[in-house]
């Protein structure tokens, strides 16, 4: 099991966008199971009007994508380390296909992500995965691509 403190040494993401709390299972180059607890004190639940229905408090889909993607990124970085290499550059979300939402998570729920490797290369990783809450399927992704991009290429994008 890998705790949050260790995850900050694996992923470049930090509070409040670090959306993985703990790794439960990890098999290098193959599979990871990670959890993220959703709580009403997160910034995404700030500023909501009074009297809204339950559905208004669904954990945002974009953050769910980010959270599942970070579980995949952790799998990639950990696998590289265990293989004696280090990813070179800034970690970026490259692409995703077939990211379906089958339910919602709410404050108090624990997201359980499972990500499986399709292919790992030096500068890119292709994975698929799913997210469950108490066994209930919340999301499935057919394919997501993570890339490591040289920092200079990323920094050069700012318009003067």
């Amino acid at each position: 099991m890998l705790e949050y403190a260790y995850l900050t040494r694996v992923l470049p993401h930090r509070h409040p966008i670090l959306q993985v709390d703990r790794v439960l299972e990890y098999t290098p180059n193959q599979r990871i199971v990670a959890v993220k607890a959703v709580t009403g004190t997160e910034p995404c639940f700030a500023g909501l009007a009074d009297g809204l229905p339950h559905s208004s408090f669904a954990y945002p889909s974009s953050l769910l994508v980010e959270s599942l993607g970070q579980a995949g990124a952790a799998l990639w970085v950990l696998s590289a380390r265990d293989g004696g290499t280090v990813l070179d550059g800034t970690l970026m979300f490259g692409a995703a296909r077939g990211f379906e939402f089958h339910g919602s998570a709410y404050p108090g729920d624990v997201l359980r992500h499972e990500v499986v490797v399709e292919s790992l290369k030096e500068n890119s990783a292709v994975m698929r995965g799913e997210t469950r809450v108490d066994g209930r399927l919340i999301a499935v992704v057919a394919s997501m691509l993570a890339i490591a991009r040289p920092e200079a290429a990323v920094a050069g994008s700012v318009n003067p």
Partner: peptide, 22 residues
């Protein structure tokens, strides 16, 4: 009427956005 996201059918990121970008 309320709208939710059923699926991100596809997304491909080509270039980053940094503060100052629009």
């Amino acid at each position: 009427t309320r709208v939710t996201l059923a699926e991100v059918r596809s997304v491909r990121f080509k270039a980053p956005l940094r503060p100052g970008d629009e």
